[in-house]
């Protein structure tokens, strides 16, 4: 919530910059020393606000054993987890697990979205196609990808292909639905305007429909990313030698709770990082929007 608000503030400021000729967004001339100081203070404040919720969580985590509500043997302290994290990085090649997981997510997501965008577009654009396929798409979308794991193992085995297939499935159906619901809401006014200005069908597609669809592509990507992470870990928990899900599963076999914590936090941070990257890209591409992220 706070991040959204902050991002919106940042964007309004960028547009204000752009309306002034010759100034580039982001590089405000800090000619006045007072301005620089205030700017630095504002930056610090923003950083502080962003860090605050994390600090609260950490604080509560530290307090937890003192309350006596939990068994201290089962809940490691943040420090223990951090040590374990470092240990995993240096001795157990946690890097490789992160790399494997990231690779699977990226591959599955890329394939899923590449197919979800045109298909979602067609479903949104042509009403008969929508009527025809809507129940089907909704059925497969509501099906948790995890429920398909046994079948995927039967058909695709337990190696890389199986995981990418799972992620493809997850990314495709979550992406397709966002894409087509977005396209359905396209304002027909813009198309009429373009037509009255003399635009041909292919000009309308390239100059009107693509810019209008772009925000939905980015939203679809973000939603699919979230679903993909969830699916990835589930599929790695079941059958994988390497990957963050496998790290957690192995640690669970040896009752290494601190490693489980480290793995979970690692997954969360990677997902967060990827989402932030997408948001930054979206903010860059969609400066014109009233809101950056729907």
């Amino acid at each position: 919530m706070t991040n959204d608000a902050l991002a919106r503030v940042a964007v309004t400021r960028e547009t204000a910059d752009r309306s002034r000729p010759g100034s580039r967004p982001g590089s405000r001339p800090g000619s006045r020393p007072g301005g620089v100081a205030r700017k630095a203070w504002q930056l610090a404040l923003h950083a502080g606000l962003r860090a605050l919720p994390w600090l609260i969580v950490l604080f509560l985590w530290y307090l937890l054993p003192a309350t006596g509500l939990v068994n201290t043997a089962l809940v490691p302290t943040p420090w223990q987890v951090l040590v374990k994290f470092y240990e995993q990085l240096t001795t157990n090649r946690l890097w490789l697990d992160m790399y494997m997981s990231l690779q699977r997510v990226t591959l599955g997501l890329a394939c899923g979205i590449v197919l979800a965008v045109p298909i979602g577009f067609l479903l949104g654009w042509y009403r008969p196609a929508r009527t025809l396929f809507d129940p089907l798409v909704n059925f497969f979308r509501s099906l948790p990808p995890i429920a398909l794991i046994p079948l995927v193992i039967v058909y695709f085995g337990i190696d890389e292909l199986a995981k990418v297939v799972m992620l493809f499935y997850a990314a495709f159906f979550s992406g397709v639905i966002v894409m087509y619901e977005g396209i359905v809401q396209t304002n027909p006014l813009f198309i009429r305007v373009a037509r009255t200005l003399g635009a041909t069908d292919d000009e309308i597609f390239r100059r009107i429909i693509i810019p209008l669809a772009l925000p939905h592509v980015l939203t679809a990507l973000r939603v699919a990313l979230g679903v993909s992470w969830a699916t990835l870990v589930a599929s790695e928990l079941i059958a994988a030698q390497r990957g963050l899900g496998a790290v957690i599963q192995n640690a669970s076999n040896y009752f290494q709770i601190d490693t489980i914590y480290a793995g979970i936090i690692c997954i969360g941070l990677l997902a967060l990082l990827m989402d932030r990257c997408l948001r930054v890209i979206a903010a860059r591409l969609l400066q014109w929007q009233e809101r950056i992220v729907p």
């Binding site: 006014l189 813009f190 009429r192 305007v193 009255t196 200005l197 009107i208 810019p211």
Partner: peptide, 20 residues
Amino acid sequence: TRPGADRGVIFQDYGVFPWL
């Protein structure tokens, strides 16, 4: 038979393209 550049149209809701 179709819209043409010989007839300019001004719509009630402006229809200004927000991405431009």
